[in-house]
Each structure stands twice: as structure tokens, then as C-alpha cells.
Amino acid sequence: MLELRLVQGNLLKKVLEAVKDLVTDANFDCSSTGFSLQAMDSSHVALVALLLRSEGFEHYRCDRNVSMGMNLNNMAKMLKCAGNDDIVTIKADDGSDTVTFMFESPNQDKIADFEMKLMDIDSEHLGIPEAEYHAIVRMPSSEFARICKDLSSIGDTVVISVTKEGVKFSTRGDIGNANVVCRQNTTVDKPEESTTIEMHEPVSLTFALRYMNSFTKATPLSSTVTISLSSELPVVVEYKIAEMGYIRFYLAPKIED
């Protein structure tokens, strides 16, 4: 028996909007730790890892570890039917081939049940080793989204370089090239508007902008984004989900052929 009650139901709506374009089908794993997902995109270039900790749910019952295979587009369709202020409960019976999403309006005057068919998905979990990153950039998530969108109108790839001067996002394409430099800026009033750069070593890596733009679909989940870079490692683009966990996107860099 599984029953997870999330008062901020719109968090789950936002999570689905953030991953459904990158991943088609995925197993959601439910354990005493929380509700999680790890999945690769169809071309095995990017990986998404989601964790919603059990403590973040108002009620969390998970009698045994369960893995539920879901089509994320279908799940997103169902969650779109929940109101933004609705409480969402995920329910599944042991051995059942369906999952139920229950939506309750805040004043309990409307209760809806949406039952979705589960699917068998063969997927292996990848081990993500702890790593020391050469540079960690924390910046407003809307700013990062804007840069990725702007650069993708010029080129297909972005070079992210971190030096003492700041973090530089560069692209080049048929019509020309573009560089956006963000300097460390902690003097603003609100911490969520600041840019901080923790650099141990300068680093410069090239990534496909198509994936970066896809990651920025998670922008509504968090006002800030953390970009962790190390040469010879996938970049980690992390959006913290307040009081609940995180969504992390890993993207392998491009190299000279």
C-alpha cells in the first residue's frame, strides 16, 4: 500500500512539466526516503535525478519499496487536471497495475480521482559518484533560462567557462557569435537574485544547448539554479525544491572529434 499526500500539489505539476520533454517513460521509485526518479533521455546523453523526500509530504505511507513505471506525458496530462492550489495524493495498492492521483480542492468541496495505467519499464540505475567540482556557479534560474534561450537563437552549443572574472556563456553560429559574462554579484538585496561563483580551478566545457534549454523547464521550481562543472565530468544543473529535495540534470560534455 502506497499513499503520499502532498499539500503543495502544484510542485508535482511543475516537476512533470520539467521532465516530460526530456524523458518519455520512467520508473518512479518509492521508499522510506522519498519519491524519486532517475532516468536518461532517449539518446543517453542526459540524466535526470529527482528526489522528493518523505518528510516533505503531509502524509507518507510506503509499506515496501515500489517502482512504478509511468509514461510521463500521460502523467502530466492527469496532473494538469489538478488545480494549482489542490492537495494531490498518489495512491497505489500492492501489486496493482494502476496508480491513482487524487486531487482535493483546498476547502475540500471538490475531490477528483484520476487512475492511470502503469507500465513495465526496463531501466538500470546508474551510480553517480560524489565528485569534487572545479567550479560551482549559483545564479537566478530565470537569468540562466534567458541566457540559454538567447544563445540558442545564434548557435547549437554553449561553451561555459569559469575564471576569476566570472562565468562566460559563449556560442557561435552561421550568423555570428555571442558571449554573455556574469560576474559574481552578492551585493543585491535579495539572495535569490545574486550570482556566486566558487572556483577551485578554471574550467571550460562545451554542451548542447538543446539539452540546456530543456533543463530550464524546471525554472518554476526554484528561483536559483546551481551549475557544477568539472573537466571530464557531466555538468550538473540543479534546481532545489524547497523543503522537499531537488531535481538534478546531468549532461555529458561535447569533445573535439
Binding site: M40, H44, V45, A46, L47, E124, H125, L126, G127, I128, P129, T157, T206, A208, L233, P234, Y250, L251, A252, P253, K254, I255, E256, D257
Partner: peptide, 14 residues
Amino acid sequence: KQKQQPISRFFAPK
């Protein structure tokens, strides 16, 4: 010319 690396080059199955 640049080549896209797969994620499996960095992360192995558990």
C-alpha cells in the same frame, strides 16, 4: 567538429 559523449561514459550501472 565536436562529438557528443554518452552519459554512460561517466556513470556505470549500479
